[in-house]
Design a protein around this nucleic acid. Structure first.
Lengths: 246, 246
DNA sequence: CGAATAGTGTCTCTCAGACAATATTGC
DNA sequence: GCAATATTGTCTGAGAGACACTATTCG
């Protein structure tokens, strides 16, 4: 820890902190998944003011002694049952327009979470219902606060991240097939991908996937069983998985 | 504007905002430039507590009625004389560890700015001196608050942004040569680049640079005069300018 | 002319996209 | 065998990196 001088300690003792603290800080979570082949976001229906009856991203106030990341992970685990270790969590950014919350001046720090397909959790405090909603079906007009902007930023960030990182695997279970991964890319980017080129590319990118050496059970449509893989150690993809242009 | 019900208005009137506002919010600026071929950041020496005598990123408190972006641009123009139109400004992220400021609970929203080479501005309030410091020469131990982490995040983001956006041009004047742009890439990435391949790549990427049709004045070393370009309309680069690997 | 910088051409290798062909399962 | 999915192979064109070569300036 940094050493402080007597002058600094004296100054600090005389400092009136309340005079400079007119803000509240919240975390909001853009929790994304791919369920049934649809790129979806977790939304709650608010049961309290403000924006009662509107749809919103899950979130809440940061406690005075809590780190931002801590607050996000705590809410994630409490309200959605998603374990931190099973998902990818990263900060998306801060949203702080002066009028974004009618109650008071609130700065919201948004977090982006990628989670495997899961059943909808039970509603927490202040929420009437909770549901996974396909991103394309979200009615921006019905979103509370500035959550339409936050969601749009999260979706765009997710689409970009799949290009340069192996995070698509964060949408899958620990053991996954190449087809599982392809369906994630197809759902998030909303484009069809050639299974043969995708397979060659993904298995040829070092550190992306590591073979388990065991086949997956055959799906309902039959066909040759796929090999199982786990996430590899890479944190960035070389070469990248670029989105088809136009 | 959203219509509110009487129930919501009543509820809002009874809401005690002060009970939930224990935070202060600041903006901190990672202001980067390339001056004399060095990738540099603007740092101030603090003349007030806390961290008096330490080096810090320029920044300050957000006013209660001010948008975050507004606060960042205001400080940029006031404290550094950089005009918004001449620079690129984007949000870097929020930093809010509970103990990051000894005065009180402060969440800092960091902004990343790319500006052309400029003389160091005159020190503003609370600063003893202001200077452009080459990023490699910054002594992390002497940085106030968590500014070492903020700076590291900004530098890494800048390096990544040059790969797939045309923002390298934001470090140059409105009219620039291919060599100007190459020196930006070389300084930010700290790698030498082949001038011939760089030229072919940059002029072959649609929307990156637009020819002015006029040559630049010859430099001090002589040689054939370079053609002048302006920034093109592209917001993303295809193909990308990938960093050399290892 | 020589030195210095700007810009073009050429070669090789990697990789993306199109698509043929083969492999392995359930029925 | 047939349908369905998985996986490998083959071809073509775009692009990256190495580097020879030409162009234009100053002195």
């Amino acid at each position: 820890m940094r050493r402080t001088s007597k002058a600094e300690r004296d100054w600090l003792a005389a400092y009136d902190a309340t005079a400079f603290a007119p803000f509240a800080v919240t975390v909001d979570m853009v929790l994304l998944t791919v369920a049934d082949g649809r790129f979806s976001v977790l939304l709650v229906e608010r049961d309290t003011h403000p924006f009662r009856g509107f749809i919103a991203l899950p979130g809440g106030f940061v406690q005075p002694d809590e780190d931002l990341d801590e607050a996000a992970v705590r809410r994630l685990e409490q309200e959605t049952g998603v374990r931190r270790s099973a998902a990818h969590v990263e900060q998306l950014g801060a949203f702080g327009a002066p009028d974004r919350d009618p109650r008071m001046r609130v700065v919201s720090v948004a977090y982006l979470v990628f989670a495997p397909g899961l059943p909808a959790p039970t509603p927490g405090a202040g929420a009437r219902s909770v549901a996974w909603v396909p991103v394309e079906d979200v009615d921006s007009e019905r979103l509370a606060f500035d959550h339409a902007r936050v969601l749009a930023a999260g979706v765009e960030r997710a689409r970009a991240k799949l290009e340069y990182t192996p995070l698509a695997a964060a949408f899958c279970d620990a053991e996954l097939t190449v087809a599982d991964l392809r369906r994630v890319y197809e759902a998030v980017w909303a484009v069809p991908l050639d299974p043969r080129n995708f397979h060659r590319k993904v298995t040829g990118t070092p550190g992306f996937l590591q073979p388990v050496g065991r086949p997956a059970p055959v799906g309902p449509e039959g066909g040759r069983p796929a090999a199982l893989y786990r996430r590899g150690p890479a944190t960035a993809l070389h070469p990248a998985m670029l989105r088809p242009r136009t």
